[in-house]
């Protein structure tokens, strides 16, 4: 079985294509599930909260996935993995957009004075809003053309992703009422990825 499909992955390009297809599938399935649940009225008693939590969590998952590419490349020597990082980052952005839209529209019906009040008065909303704003320049400069045009500055700019990750995790910690189990799990994953990255670059330099 494996041998019969292995020619598919024989070339780096085929491998990248296959992985990209897998990412598209993995990213569309949660959205599809959300849509089905919405249509069948199965989002629970508080559907807006469900959508906000769901899309926020998936944005965080894709953020962590995109941050896992570099450690994976260094550790497993899979340098071609870099080709899928942008896709993961853009899916993080897509989920973040749906997250923010569900907050602005479904939760607050675009009531801007109320939204302004909520952002200014509640630290977790302010931190979340900041994280989202910081994703905008990254998404805007994700094209090949932007990478070429910005050269070294592109790398500096895209290091903002670490700030975004910290803000997103803080957003999660602060919104939880008392049981911090889930934010702890995501924070540990993030810390693990950062540690692995630091250790692997250190090893390579030695």
């Amino acid at each position: 079985m494996l041998r019969s499909i292995s020619p598919l992955f024989s070339s780096p390009l085929a491998r990248i294509r296959a992985l990209k297809a897998l990412i598209w599938l993995g990213a569309c399935l949660p959205l599809l599930r959300l849509l089905v649940l919405a249509v069948t009225d199965d989002l629970g008693a508080n559907p807006v909260e469900f959508i906000e939590r769901f899309t926020g969590t998936w944005a965080l998952v894709f953020l962590l996935l995109s941050l896992s590419i570099t450690p994976l490349r260094l550790w497993a020597g899979l340098s071609w993995l870099i080709a899928v990082r942008r896709l993961l980052g853009l899916w993080m952005f897509a989920y973040a957009c749906v997250h923010v839209l569900s907050y602005l529209w479904l939760d607050y019906s675009f009531d801007w004075p109320d939204i302004g009040h909520d952002i200014v008065k509640h630290p977790y909303v302010l931190v979340g809003a900041s994280a989202f704003l910081l994703t905008l320049p990254l998404a805007a400069t994700s094209s090949q053309r932007a990478i070429r045009a910005l050269k070294q500055r592109w790398k500096r700019l895209h290091q903002l992703v670490y700030v975004i990750a910290v803000l997103a995790l803080l957003h999660y910690w602060w919104l939880v009422k008392k049981d911090v189990t889930e934010p702890v799990i995501y924070s540990l994953l993030f810390a693990g990825l950062m540690l692995a990255r630091w250790w692997l670059t250190f090893e390579r330099r030695r």
């Binding site: 008693a45 559907p47 939760d107 607050y108 019906s109 009531d111 109320d114």
Partner: peptide, 11 residues
């Protein structure tokens, strides 16, 4: 938010 008011009910 009133529970059960629907997705687009607002606050």
């Amino acid at each position: 938010k009133r529970i059960g008011a629907g997705l687009f009910a607002g606050r």
